[in-house]
Amino acid sequence: MTMKTYRLKKPRVVVVGGGTGLPVILKSLRNQGMDITAVVTVADDGGSSGEIRKSITMAPPGDLRNVLVSLSDMPKLYEDIFQYRFKQEDHFLANHALGNLIIAAISEMRGSTYDAVQLLAKMMHVDGHIYPSSEKPLILHAVFQDGTTAIGESSIAKERKTIEHVYVTNQENQEEPKAARKVVKAILEADVIVLGPGSLFTSILPNLMIHDIGQAIQASQAEKVYICNIMTQKGETEHFTDADHVRVLHRHLGHQFIDTVLVNIEKVPEGYMDFSIYDEYLVQVKHDFNGLREEGCRVVSTDFLELRNGGVFHDGEKVVDELLRIVYEARV
Rank of each mutant, 00 (worst) to 15 (best):
G50V: 12
E295P: 01
Y226K: 08
D44C: 07
Q256F: 09
G214A: 04
A116N: 00
A94D: 01
N207Y: 01
R160C: 11
A219E: 15
R251P: 00
F144P: 03
D315K: 11
S301G: 11
Y78F: 15
N229C: 12
K224L: 07
D80I: 01
V42R: 02
A105Y: 13
A59G: 00
D45F: 07
T202R: 09
H287E: 14
R308N: 14
F240H: 15
L101M: 13
E108G: 03
F92H: 11
G235Y: 06
S55M: 14
F201S: 03
R181N: 12
V319I: 15
S28I: 00
R325P: 03
P269M: 04
D127W: 06
N207P: 08
A38C: 10
I210Y: 01
V312C: 06
S133K: 03
F240R: 06
G99I: 10
D191K: 08
I163N: 04
G18N: 06
L119C: 10
M3P: 13
R325V: 14
I81L: 14
R247N: 12
D212F: 00
I56R: 13
N207H: 04
K4D: 13
E159W: 02
A121L: 02
S55P: 02
S154W: 04
E317C: 02
E280I: 14
S203A: 15
G47K: 03
G310N: 08
L120V: 10
P23L: 02
E89T: 14
K224A: 04
S112T: 12
K185N: 12
G291Q: 10
K234V: 07
I258T: 09
D63T: 05
D303M: 04
R293D: 05
L64C: 03
K224T: 10
P137G: 04
I56D: 07
K122I: 04
M231E: 03
G310H: 11
Y281G: 02
A105V: 11
P60E: 07
E159L: 12
S276D: 12
